[in-house]
Amino acid sequence: MTNSTQTKLYPEIIEFIEECLTREHPESYLISILHKLQERHGYLTREHMYEVAQRLQVPASVVSGVSTFYHFFRLKPRGRYAISICLGTACFVKGADKILEAFRKKLGINMGETTKDGLFSLENTRCLGVCGLAPVVTINDKIYSRVTPQQVPDLLSRALAD
């Protein structure tokens, strides 16, 4: 809940919202604004979203509905290393669930969470379009193919070593 009008949003985001307000149906730019905000901040905070709602004059309830409906939006800080495990059909039948389980055990976090030290976060993704390499895991921009649960500790240390 924001009790103050003190601004917390980034100037470039405010500028973008101001620009949207000059266009027709400014409310239709909500998703673009949230995209930009996530790109800038890493994830969407409640304070930021309240401010977006006020500035764009879109109900906060709508902003919260949109931000939780789309899988793309993150509501929690992402770790330095974002681990995405493809749970698409091909990867799944090749044992992606077991890989996920190995990551969960090793890191002690669930899907959508970040380790306390802020290093790793687990994200789920649907088909990356490289089903021939199934099961696929990405850590930040690196793609790892034909991953097995046994490789999980090694993947983590390789990420840290980078």
């Binding site: 109900p59 309830s61 709508v62 919260s64 509905g65 939780t68 409906f69």
Partner: peptide
């Protein structure tokens, strides 16, 4: 009032 919404999916 726009207080209520559907969240998550």
């Amino acid at each position: 009032v726009h207080n209520l919404t559907q969240m998550h999916r």
